[in-house]
Design a protein around this nucleic acid. Sequence first.
RNA 1: GCGCCUGUAGCUCAGGUGGAUAGAGCAACGGAUUUCUAAUCCGUCGGUCGGGGGUUCGAGUCCCUCCAGGCGCGCCA
Length: 548
Amino acid sequence: MISSYLSKAVRSAATEAGYSLDGPVSLETPRDPAHGDLSTNVAMQLAKGAGKPPRQVAENIVAHLKQGLDPSRIGPPTIAGPGFINFMFQPALVHEGLQEILGAGPAFGRSEWGSGQKVLLEFVSANPTGPLNVVSARAAAVGDGLTRLLRACGFQADSEFYVNDAGNQVRMLGESVKARLLELDGKPFEIPENGYHGEDVRDIARAIREAGLEEKLREEDAREGGAFGQWAVSFNLARQKADLEQYGVRFERFFHESEIHSRGLVKESLDDLRSRGYIEEKDGALWFRSTDFGDDKERVVVRSSGEPTYFLADTAYHREKHARGYGHAIDFWGPDHHGAVPRIKASMAALGYPADWLEVVIVQQVNLRRGGQLVDMSKRAGNLVTLRELVDEVGVDVARFFFLMRSVTSHLDFDLDLAREQSDKNPVFYVQYAHARACSVERFAAENGVDGAQADFSLLKEPEEMTLIKELMKLPLAVEMAVRLREPMRVTNYLTSVGQMFHPFYHKHRVVTSEPALSAARLRLVNAVRQVLGNGLALLGISAPEKM
RNA sequence: GCGCCUGUAGCUCAGGUGGAUAGAGCAACGGAUUUCUAAUCCGUCGGUCGGGGGUUCGAGUCCCUCCAGGCGCGCCA
């Protein structure tokens, strides 16, 4: 890697010049290409301690640096501005980069720095009481994207969906279904106060009726209760799975909350916390002393009725994750649950796990925009937009790309009119079109007998070719940054910038020309563009069409 | 009242660990195609980075404070 080579060279040059440099040598790509390909600010950092002007420090470092650099790869370092030392890549280095991309092929952008560490990602985890909404759609796109990216970086990443199939809500769903069954018969019916009023509950009632299951369920329900609720949960979950499948998101596991209870893990967790001294009784209930770990109030874990709370079950679930040997867990939660983060982190700390073992990423809300107006998605308004409706309207690629264009922590405005538009206004197609265009050039080259096998890269020296290759070389960095920051958006933005360099190159320079050698070299560059765009899109779960 | 997120061009948003003259898309306007995909390209217009303090060689970025919007503060899940 060129940056580690340079940082070593700078470090030893600084030492030889008599400066003591603690901390890493920062190398970054200057905003302005005229300032070189990589730049370091060490001279400014050292200036104060050395009691000399930054530019003079830079002079001293550069004087020693010249011996350590291979002039055929890195041009002579220059000093600029307040004391930056700038490095320019020589064509030979850039050509080596191109060779590296082509040699790695589908593996380009992948790395091993995760070294097989086990990570568990939990996302969506929507209640099985209805269809998936657009917030789930966003979480699914981000969570799945990050799972793919972690794997590309050598982590053993698994994805999981937690099914809240226990508790009060399932019973309320069952009661709501029963009410809708009465409605089907034209009888008087009443949906419970905390019940589910959505149209989808009518679907469930009709499905029971059509499958001829009503009698059977009534008997079971009379015997042990909850039959309608359980059936409805299965029905909803099957739909959610189908929607996610269509959306290109597949989970390693759907973990049912009921399993936490049936395996006795809730009691185990309670006992564990109690033996560690964090449980106390008050007002007939059991409380977890989460304030010991920075939460602002203590939390009930067992109600005075004897029933465990959702929080205790969730603690038990995360304890189970830890028991499965995951060295790190990442949860994606909706914005309405951010208040619960301190207590779950507190319970993890109480169980003795490292402070950063559980990481909770809050996926911010989604606003839909149609006709310039925000769509009211409140439940009362009744026009909840589902993941399925969204995908049916704009397609999988557009939906995923739009969710991955924005920072996870930002509220997102999803413009349905723009998303539905099959035109140049839609940013998704910009990247896909670049890929299709590259494929098209490859086809044309093949038809005209251009063969890149023996290409001489030294023929690539146009500015557009150089900047394009330099950008292509940055895919691994974009992937790494996306993983470090938990922001798949980094890759989306990167791919857009590749397009912004490939399209101008295409316009200015013909690939297939009357010069066979040049044609071969440029064809290999196009191969690399296609590879980088294809690899990047695959990491985001977005298709890379060969024709558009 | 407390906590979390957000505030950058008319709109939607980017801006690795603080770096050099703050960027992109859309919108508006003007151009480009006898040849590999015009879903493209080139150009123009557009900014008190919410306000005010502070930290330092340097702040959109860090700290404090105020303002505005969103969300959350249950023996619900």
